[in-house]
Design a protein around this nucleic acid. Structure first.
Length: 721
DNA sequence: CGCGCGTAGTTACCTAAAGT
DNA sequence: ACTTTAGGTAACTACGCGCG
């Protein structure tokens, strides 16, 4: 259809969908960027529970719309219209948090989602279960009446000013080590334990005395302080812990890891301060007194006497879990202290008494969300920053030197507690089912963007959950949510209009190791209800994740082959992808070819930013995803192009995106170039090493160009390559 | 064994938009 | 208009590896 240099991809003569030629990449990138600021508010149904790689809903709305529209349709023009694509079926074989399913049902299509991870299947089923706000509120009220008072009593302290009992918001803990001489050292790097996010504007900070453990207020940068309780003179900026070392009173330095308990138990902790909520609603920092320690011990004693549904599973060795295991965290229950285990156990036991199973499972999902904010791997972020840094903010399991103990039930001023997440996550998500919305920009008379608003562009989400393909076939707006290996789907051949997905990226996060944290709680209470919950852990032989790109390619090929089987001949398989290394792309190429597919188009678009690992972020941060569009090989028109054409496309695309205000790094140029290379070589059936070599050439080529452009050196063409 | 180097992991600080 | 939330990012620091 066109060979214009500003379009990437070559439109096959047989194009069957709009997505093969058109994608409003700039408009959607801008919305996607806006959406990514507060994903949980802009697409609440995909954030009902923690998932590690949630895709941007607006991008997947665009992809799904394009994949289900006739060639020549202007996708952008259709973006805000209400659609009713009844009869169309969309499949996502890596459904994750369910983004594709949600966007497909919003367009009125039927959807099939499958994931090998049971936590994913559980959370997606909860996300799409319509339960009325009234029913949920009634269940919440019952819990509030029957179990909240019991839980709250373990989060109380006496206000030293008034003598009243007040609620504790947070307990501050610090890990301690014991030297061979018997000295117990707290692993504090500073004695300032709380300060504002803008310390220069609000220098008021909380400091604990290393001698008497009294708490006092002073400047965040104070270097010479006299304790107002015991008179001790000290430097609040210098604690005994620095990096991987700790210094004893004698001046002797030890490696912290060498002082861990020798018996293989997790590190010890000391509770050293609290933040409580006064009757007038103000927050106050308090030292820990004997009565507070006694209350904790009471919880410990009760924990040993109660029969509670607590996790028994051990932490299996793995890429993401070894760091925690290195600190002797060998069982998932080690991630919680006694009070947390007691209160979580009491709450879970009560939730399990809810008769209506649909409501009960909504509450179980909320309970599981709460776990993320109520364990010893959480930390305090400081005032003015959203107090709790939850355990998965880094996609790793890093033992915190100074854990923050949140309160399980919570107060009106808490964050990350059962009662606050009920409103901010569960009810918000249910409201989105009733009234789904999109972000739209508003412009002033001169055409400048002046703000954004939410606009309704879909019918309410009334997907009917079905359990089999036959039911889906006959139901309007059916939704089939499966658990299992997507290389064997209970779906007939040639029955799906589009496959829209986000495959795991070679070398990235190992979800099942992390999802075990939730699975350890969910499995014992759900294993009799769902066969896919009845396993030892959330891992599976069929998982697509391997450090060897060739093995990874083979695993991915199995799923793509199955997707190709169930796909109609005029359907597309589209997915988002990016990777900073040639191997990652070579693996994708191999998986696609082996499945009998060919990449026919690629559209760059704003990616979800994975802040998790800075491994590539330093030099060439990637902010683009490539939307790769594939057709069955027999129905795709192939055109091999020369490497300089690929280079030209990269230049054209990059400058267009830059003109639209996106920052394009060398890493982004490689994403565009690699995607172009997959199109250019789609017909060549290259082996892994051959395609990798091509990709390497492109990688070096586009990087060089980026540097030259930056330094003002005249562009040199790669025609010689 | 110390050093340089590239990369993995941590901390301090910053922010758009929601909430009040 | 101000505070809170749930994130992000720059800069720093530790770590592993090869090398003399």
């Amino acid at each position: 259809m066109n060979a214009a240099p500003d379009k990437i991809g070559h439109v096959p003569a047989t194009a069957a969908t709009a997505l093969e030629s058109d994608f409003p990449q700039i408009e959607i990138s801008q919305i996607a960027e806006q959406e990514s600021w507060r994903k949980e508010i802009n697409r609440p149904i995909y954030h009902i529970h923690k998932w590690w790689a949630t895709r941007l809903g607006s991008v997947f709305r665009g992809i799904t719309l394009g994949a289900l529209s006739q060639p020549g349709t202007d996708t952008w023009e259709q973006f805000y219209k209400t659609h009713d694509l009844a009869g169309k079926v969309v499949l996502d074989p890596f459904m994750g948090s369910g983004t594709t399913l949600g966007e497909a049902v919003k367009l009125g299509a039927k959807a099939v989602g499958c994931d090998i991870n049971p936590v994913s299947t559980f959370l997606v089923r909860q996300a799409f279960t319509p339960v009325s706000e009234a029913e949920l509120r009634a269940a919440f009220k019952r819990l509030e009446r029957d179990v909240a008072p019991e839980i709250r009593r373990y989060y109380q302290t006496r206000d030293p000013q008034t003598g009243e009992l007040i609620q504790v918001l947070y307990y501050f803990w610090v890990k301690t080590v014991t030297t061979p001489e018997g000295e117990v050292i707290p692993l504090l790097s500073r004695y300032v334990f709380s300060q504002d996010a803008y310390p220069k504007k609000k220098p008021r900070a909380q400091i604990v005395c290393p001698d008497c453990w009294g708490v006092q207020e002073d400047r965040y940068d104070a270097t010479d302080l006299r304790c107002q309780h015991c008179g001790n003179q000290f430097n609040p900026q210098k604690g005994p812990a620095a990096g991987q070392y700790v210094t004893a009173e004698s001046g002797q330095r030890y490696r912290i890891k060498e002082l861990l308990p020798k018996d293989g138990s997790p590190p010890s902790h000391r509770m050293y301060a609290m933040m409580a909520l006064r009757a007038d609603g103000s927050k106050v920092y308090l030292p820990v007194r004997d009565e507070d320690l006694a209350l904790y011990e009471e919880a410990q004693v009760r924990l040993s006497r109660e029969a509670l549904p607590l996790p028994e599973a051990s932490v299996r060795p793995g890429h993401n879990t070894d760091q925690a295991r290195g600190y002797n965290y060998t069982h998932w229950r080690d991630f919680f202290n006694a009070r947390q285990l007691l209160c979580l156990g009491l709450l879970l036991r009560e939730i399990l008494t809810i008769d209506d199973l649909a409501v009960q499972e909504q509450m179980l999902c909320l309970f599981s969300s709460t776990l993320e904010f109520n364990n010893l791997f959480c930390s305090f972020k400081g005032e003015g920053t959203g107090a709790v840094r939850h355990m998965f903010s880094n996609h790793i399991l890093k033992p915190e030197r100074t854990p923050l103990e949140n309160s399980v039930w919570g107060t009106e001023k808490s964050s990350g507690t059962f009662s606050t997440l009920f409103e901010s996550r569960l009810l918000r998500a249910k409201r989105y089912l009733d009234e789904p919305f999109e972000i739209a920009f508003e412009y002033d008379q001169d055409g400048n963007r002046k703000g954004s608003r939410k606009t309704v562009a879909s019918h309410s989400i009334r997907a009917r959950r079905v359990e089999t393909w036959d039911e889906l076939d006959t139901a309007d707006h059916g939704l089939l949510i499966l658990n299992g290996d997507s290389s064997r789907l209970p779906v007939p051949a040639g029955s799906v209009d589009a496959v829209v997905t986000d495959p795991p990226y070679f070398d990235f996060v190992h979800y099942s190791e992390l999802s075990d944290f939730f699975f350890a709680w969910l499995s014992p209470v759900l294993r009799h209800r769902y066969p896919w919950m009845a396993r030892e852990d959330s891992s599976d032989q069929g998982e697509v994740q391997h450090k060897d790109p060739r093995v990874f390619a083979r695993q991915l090929a199995a799923v793509f082959t199955e997707s190709c089987r169930v796909l109609k001949d005029d359907g597309v398989l589209a997915f988002s992808f990016h990777h900073s290394r040639a191997e990652g792309w070579a693996a994708i190429y191999e998986a696609i070819s082996e499945a009998g597919l060919a990449v026919v188009a690629a559209h760059p678009v704003h990616a979800e930013l994975r802040g998790a690992s800075p491994k590539t972020a330093a030099k060439d941060p990637i902010s683009l995803d490539a939307i790769l569009v594939c057709r069955k090989k027999a129905f795709a028109l192939h055109r091999s192009s020369a490497i300089q054409d690929v280079r030209q496309s990269v230049d054209a695309l990059s400058s267009r995106l830059q003109a639209a205000g996106l920052r394009i790094s060398a890493g982004d140029r490689f994403v565009i170039g690699a995607a172009q290379t997959l199109i250019a070589r789609a017909a060549d059936d290259l082996g892994f090493d051959e395609i990798k070599e091509h990709l390497e050439t492109i990688r070096l080529g586009v990087r060089a160009t980026a540097r030259e452009v930056e330094s003002g050196v005249v562009d040199v063409h790669l025609a010689t390559v």
